[in-house]
C-alpha cells in the first residue's frame, strides 16, 4: 500500500510538473520567484482547509461545513479583537470555535448515526446563519495591526501562511502515517465494521477527524482575516468544494480508507497554479472553470486506471 500511495503521489507531482511546464513556456512571468511564492500563498488557505478535509475523507466522512465554520470563527475572533481581547486569546477562541463546530458535526455522525454529507450540509447553513446573525451581515473591520502582521509577514522571504501550512502538513502527515490515530482513520474509513470488531475506538476516531477539520478551517480563517484585515460573515463560500477537489486530485478516495497528505497538498498547488497561470495568460473565467473541471476528471480517471487493477 505504501508503495502504491507513493506511486499515486508521484502521479500527482507529475501532473503538477506538466501543468507548470506548460505555463512556464507560455507565460514568461510564471516561473519567477515572486509569482511562485504568490501561487503558494494563494493556495495556502485552501491547503489549510484541505488538510483537515483529507483526514475526514480518509475516515470515511465528508465535511461540507468548513467554509461557514471558518466564517463563524472569523467573525467571533474579529469581534473579540475589536473588543480589545489580546490577539493570542482571540486566536485560541477562533480555533476553539472550529473544534466545537467539528465536535457538533461528529456528535451527530457518531452518536446520531446520521450521514456525514447531510449532517455537514446542515452545518453549512447553520454555521453560516450564526455568523450572519452575529454580525447582522456586516463585515468587521478595524483589527489590530499586530494581528495582521502575523499573517502578512514573511520568514526568509517565504510568506508566513505558507510556512504555517507546511508545518500543519507535516503534522498531519505524521498523524496519518505514524500514529495509531492515523491507522484508525484509515481503518474506520476503509471498513468501519471491521475496525469496530478489531477494537478500534470508532466514535473517538470520528470525533478526532471532524474536530481536526473544524480546527483547520479556523486556522484558515485566522490566515484570511489577517490578510483581509476584516472578518466577513460571507467568507468561505465554496471552500468545501475546493478542498474536496484538492483531496481527490491528491488521491483521496471519497469512499474512505485511502488518501495522502502530500497528494492533497500538491492537489491544492495544482488548483492554485491553474488559476494563476490562466490569469497570467488572460484566459477568461469560464475557461478557467472548464480547465479545473477537466483536471479533476483526468485525475480521477488516472486514479481509476492505476488502482483499478488492484481489484
Amino acid at each position: 500500500m505504501l508503495s502504491l500511495l507513493r506511486f499515486r503521489d508521484a502521479g500527482t507531482v507529475l501532473g503538477l510538473l506538466i501543468i507548470g511546464t506548460v505555463f512556464a513556456t507560455l507565460a514568461p512571468t510564471f516561473l519567477t520567484a515572486p509569482n511562485l511564492l504568490n501561487v503558494l500563498q494563494q493556495s495556502s488557505i485552501n491547503a489549510c482547509v484541505a488538510l483537515g478535509m483529507t483526514l475526514v475523507i480518509i475516515s470515511g466522512g465528508i465535511d461540507l461545513s468548513v467554509g461557514p465554520v471558518a466564517a463563524l470563527s472569523a467573525v467571533l475572533g474579529a469581534a473579540l479583537m475589536v473588543a480589545g481581547v489580546p490577539v493570542p486569546l482571540a486566536i485560541a477562541a477562533m480555533i476553539g470555535t472550529g473544534l466545537a463546530c467539528g465536535a457538533f458535526n461528529a456528535a451527530l455522525v457518531a452518536f446520531g448515526g446520521l450521514q456525514p454529507f447531510i449532517v455537514t450540509l446542515g452545518g453549512l447553513s447553520l454555521y453560516r446563519a450564526l455568523a450572519l446573525i452575529f454580525t447582522g451581515g456586516q463585515p468587521i473591520f478595524g483589527l489590530p495591526e499586530g494581528f495582521r502582521a502575523l499573517t502578512n509577514g514573511t520568514l526568509a522571504g517565504v510568506p508566513n501562511p505558507v510556512i504555517l501550512v507546511a508545518v500543519l502538513a507535516i503534522l498531519a502527515h505524521v498523524v496519518l502515517n505514524k500514529t495509531p490515530l492515523g491507522e484508525y482513520f484509515l481503518a474506520v474509513g476503509g471498513n468501519p465494521e471491521a475496525a469496530r470488531i478489531a477494537g478500534v475506538p470508532v466514535r473517538a476516531t470520528k470525533f478526532a477527524a471532524y474536530m481536526i477539520s473544524g480546527a483547520c478551517a479556523s486556522v484558515a480563517s485566522v490566515v484570511l482575516v489577517g490578510r483581509l484585515g476584516a472578518a466577513e460573515p460571507t467568507m468561505g463560500t465554496l471552500w468545501e468544494l475546493d478542498a474536496i477537489a484538492a483531496a481527490a486530485i491528491g488521491g483521496a478516495s471519497l469512499m474512505g480508507g485511502r488518501g495522502s497528505i502530500l497528494g492533497t497538498l500538491i492537489g491544492c498547488i495544482i488548483l492554485g497554479t491553474l488559476r494563476n497561470g490562466l490569469t497570467l495568460l488572460n484566459v477568461q473565467a469560464f475557461y478557467q472553470l472548464l480547465a479545473t473541471g477537466i483536471i479533476i476528471i483526468v485525475a480521477m480517471l488516472v486514479d481509476r486506471l492505476t488502482t483499478g487493477k488492484q481489484g
Binding site: 512571468t29 494563494q42 488557505i45 485552501n46 467568507m235 463560500t237 465554496l238 488559476r275 473565467a285
Partner: peptide, 24 residues
C-alpha cells in the same frame, strides 16, 4: 485586460486574480 472570478461567491479566487495582475 479584463478578468473575473468564476462566480459571485468566489472571494478568494477573485483575490488571487487581482494579485496575479499586479505583477504584470
Amino acid at each position: 485586460v479584463y478578468q473575473a472570478a468564476q462566480n459571485e461567491g468566489d472571494q478568494l479566487g477573485q483575490l488571487s486574480i487581482a494579485e496575479d495582475l499586479i505583477a504584470q
